[in-house]
Computed example of a mutant assay.
Amino acid sequence: MRFAICNETFQDRSLEDGFALAAECGYEGIEIAPFTLAQRVTDLSPQRRAEIRQAIEKAGLKTVGLHWLLAKTEGFHLTSPDETIRQRTAEYLRELARCCADLGGTILVFGSPQQRNVLPQVTRAKAEDYAVEVFEKLIPELERTNTILALEPLGIQETNFVNTAEEAVAIINKLGSPRVRLHLDCKAMCSEATPIPTLLRTFREHLVHFHANDPNRLGPGFGDLDFVPIFEALLEIGYQGWVSVEVFDYGPGPERIARESIQYMLRCLEQVQRVRAGKT
């Protein structure tokens, strides 16, 4: 289990300073929101991508991948009834896969709630067909770039499409590719009736990536969500991926968010490990 943090946490400073602070706090990885780099990733030249990767590696970090894939863009929509828009969306996702690989990452977290909402004239079943169609066009590029699409369930307050882990896995199973897996986020999972540890155990075979945060939109340890049973479940299922801190409320400031989040997670992990050691 390795700890990472999303780079938009550090939007008040340069990319390089953000990477340096993440490393100083003890994170091993950085997850990138494309909108922090350019309006569209197509605006990033190969040279600029190489420079960003070098800055990440110079800080001693590894690139986890990309998230907020379609945030702050226009003209893309996963479940649009317009074939031209779906084709455009598939092509942009292919470019995101290429950018992810250029930056040294492997994970593409598909959240983007506004760009996946089921539109009024579209049925839920048809929306799923459209989503599968777009993702099928992406899979060859995922294979070529050695990247993985991580489909993220989000609560109903965020979107009306794919609100549960079960719904995400249904789409994953339809696609039937090892390049399309499941991403789970603590804040989003709190909107489900099933407890987080149970969701982790139930969907362990599909899980490839994990976001740590609190339902209050802050980092782990900033609210009431107890991460001890969460880490207990992650260790039990043998999860070896990234635990990446993603927050939405930057009020406490980036340095406090980054430091206190990882300190809290390390304490929880240590507590779980002590209990597990006592049982052996």
Rank of each mutant, 00 (worst) to 15 (best):
Glu74Thr: 15
Gly75Ser: 06
Phe76Thr: 02
Leu78Trp: 07
Leu78Lys: 04
Pro81Lys: 04
Asp82Ala: 10
Glu83Ser: 14
Thr84His: 15
Thr84Ser: 15
Arg86Trp: 04
Arg86Thr: 01
Arg86Cys: 08
Arg88Trp: 11
Ala90His: 02
Arg94Leu: 04
Leu96Thr: 04
Ala97Asn: 00
Ala101Thr: 10
Asp102Cys: 04
Leu103Ser: 01
Leu103Pro: 10
Ile107Ser: 09
Phe110Val: 07
Phe110Asn: 07
Ser112Gln: 08
Pro113Gln: 00
Gln114Asp: 13
Gln114Glu: 14
Gln115Gly: 08
Gln115Ala: 14
Val118Thr: 08
Val118Tyr: 10
Leu119Ile: 00
Gln121Ser: 14
Gln121Phe: 14
Val122Lys: 04
Val122Ile: 06
Thr123Cys: 00
Arg124Ala: 14
Ala125Ser: 15
Ala125Met: 13
Lys126Asp: 14
Lys126Gln: 13
Ala127Cys: 11
Glu128His: 09
Glu128Gln: 11
Tyr130Ile: 12
Ala131Tyr: 06
Val132Arg: 06
Lys137Tyr: 12
Lys137Met: 11
Lys137Val: 12
Lys137Gln: 14
Pro140Trp: 03
Glu141Asn: 12
Leu142Trp: 04
Leu142Val: 06
Glu143Arg: 12
Glu143Gln: 13
Thr145Gly: 05
Thr147Phe: 02
Ile148Met: 13
Ile148Thr: 15
Leu149Glu: 03
Glu152Lys: 03
Pro153Ser: 10
